Every structure is written in C-alpha cells, then in structure tokens.
Simulated scan of single mutants.
Amino acid sequence: MFKRVAIIFIISTFLVGCWDERLYKNLSVVSLAGIEGQIGEMKGYYAYPTSPKDPTKYKVIEGEGISPRDVRNSADLKVEQTLDLSELGTILLSKEAAKNPIYDFLDVYFRNPENPISSKVALTDGSVKDFLDIGDDLPSDIGEYYLRFIESFERNSIFPKQSIQHICSLFFGKGMDPVLPFLKKVEKDRKPVVGGLALFNKQVFTGTILDPKESLLLVLLMDKKGESARFSYLWESKGKKSPITADVVTLTKRWNVEEKGLTATVRLKYKLKVNIEEFPPDHLHDSEKRIKLEKFLSKKVQKDIEKLLHKLQDAKSDPLGIGQDIRAFHPKLWDDNWGEKFAELTLKPDIKVSIVRTGILR
C-alpha cells in the first residue's frame, strides 16, 4: 500500500502543469486604458509597449462601442494579438464621461478577476486622447509613467492613496463619496499637470475641483496623510513678510456630533504636529515667538479649512465620511439622499497646530 501511494505521489509531480497559463507572445499587454463618452456611445483607448527592449515605445489602439466591454472587443479586432489587461496600471476617464455614474465604466475592470484591483483611476480635463501623446522621453512605459505620477502626489498628500478597489467599494457602501485625481491638459512639453481632486456625489462628478492646496487639506481631514504634507504662508512682522513652510509630522482627530432636531452640528477637532522647514527669521527656540507662530498657523489653516468645508457642502459631496458616522451612531439624522442632508449640517472645525521640530537650526 505504501509503495502504491509513493508511486502515485511521484508520478503526480510530473503531471503538474499551468492550467491557466497565458503566453505573453500571444498577448498585447496593456498598461493604460482610457474611456470617454457615455453608455451607448463610447470610445476607448488602450496603450501597450511595442518593443520588448524599449518599453517607452508604445502604441495606442482605439475602439468604439456601446459599453466598455464592447469597446474592448472593437479594439481587439484591430490588433494582431489579444489585448491583455492583467498589468493595467492606470485608467483615465474624461470629466465629461464622469458626469454619468462612473461605475458603469469601471464595472468591467473591477468584476474581471484577471484585471488588477490596484490600478489607479484619474479624471482628465478634456479628451483622454490628448493625454496619451506625452512625448518620447518617458522613463518607463506610459501606464507606469501615470502610475508613478499619481503615486508621487499620494506621497505628498495631494491625492489620497487609493485604487480601483477602494473607489468601487465606496459605491457599494453609504455615507462617503469618492474623490479622484484630476489631470489638466498637457502643456507645451505635452506632459500632464496636476489640477487637484475632483469631487463626487455618489458615482457622479459634481463639476467641482479642488486646487492642489485645497486637496492637501482635504487629504489631511480624511486622515490619509502620505509621507509628507507641506503648506506655506507668509508671516508678517514689523512690516516685513517672510515665508513659513510647515510639514505635518503627525495628525490626530476627534469628531463630535451634536443632534439638533433633524440636523446636527459636527465639531471637527484636529491637532497637527509640524516640522518647520522654512522660516528665514529663525530664533524658534524663543518660546514666545514659537507660540505666536503656532497661533498664526492655526488661524490660517482653520480659515482655509472653513472655506474647504463650505466648498464640499456646496458640491453636496462628503469625502470625509461624516455620513458613515451619522448612519452608524445617529440613525435619526440619516437620509439615503445624503448629499442634500450633508449640505444642511453645521460643520465647525477646530484646528490646533503645534511646532515639534524646527530642522537643524534653532
């Protein structure tokens, strides 16, 4: 009996194979996909490297159809090898297309197990096609270029760190709206420029875009700080203006919801501990001067965040997830049409900035 088992085990090791094997020689591996139009009349773009020795050389295939899957089928008819999206790094979506529910466009990428759920998603200002011709001096293939481009701004806290998995999961939940990186039209050198963050109400683009400074503050309020988060202001003393730049080291938050009938006051308390990276007047060892700077920074950040919160409410967009907290702990205030309810809340931020580091200079 033991000999039979041993023989079967030995033979089975020679029978093991790759049942799901796919040979790259038979595929065109797409690293970037673009979508524009609307369901019923769509265009899609697929970029893939054409040289195994030089991935910066790429080709763009266009497809047309009534849905993302139909568009891809159309594009497949124009290539000598089947398009493969298993290494898709970035999905670009035009802001015009995003005025429709964007899950209709992303479902085919999220549902298919062969597609990566780590892909980045961004909105473009104008046709996606304009963002596919970005010059020949790329350090990597175009999909990886956009992936690294977005990740660099995640590290600098301009964009929250997220992927198609995180974005689509918000669509199945309630009480928190997504935000997406917004890329402006290419300039003379044909490279993309960061426009900030695009605000959504559920799955639909609201038309409101936060600039990079507002985007950084939003990322801080979302408690999704990257490796660094720098903000700058002008400090005026004795008629002289001097720049001051602070980098957030740590952040703590505490929210308090006070019910008032059918609405509520939400107090958003944040404590920011910062490192001063730029301040020509120096002498930060002076406690009196440091206290003045802390009050100055607290007042400036507080004022900017108040403006930001008004902008979120005007857009009826809740990327902070206040609705999740309301739905869980204050169900009487919850409304399935949360955007309207969110706009009626009284949001009161309370920001305190503390200087804990001053660089190598005193």
Rank of each mutant, 00 (worst) to 15 (best):
K78G: 02
I150V: 15
S28N: 15
N26C: 05
L77H: 04
L92F: 03
S140D: 10
E36G: 08
N115W: 03
N73H: 11
Y145H: 06
S127T: 10
V60D: 00
Y103I: 07
I117P: 06
A33D: 01
N100Q: 12
V60G: 03
S67C: 00
I142Y: 02
D137G: 00
K78D: 13
F153M: 13
S118N: 10
F153N: 14
D125P: 00
P139R: 08
Y46M: 01
L92E: 01
L147A: 11
N100M: 03
Y45H: 09
S94R: 07
L123Q: 02
N115A: 05
T50I: 15
P49I: 13
P139W: 03
Y103R: 12
A47E: 09
Q81A: 13
L77W: 00
F131T: 10
S28M: 11
L93A: 11
Y24W: 04
G37Y: 13
P101Y: 06
M42F: 02
G44C: 14
V108E: 03
D107H: 13
G143L: 09
Y24D: 07
S119C: 13
P52M: 02
D84F: 15
Y146C: 01
K99I: 09
M42N: 03
F153E: 13
E144S: 14
I117Y: 15
S86P: 07
S140R: 02
T50H: 06
P101Q: 05
L92R: 01
Y145D: 05
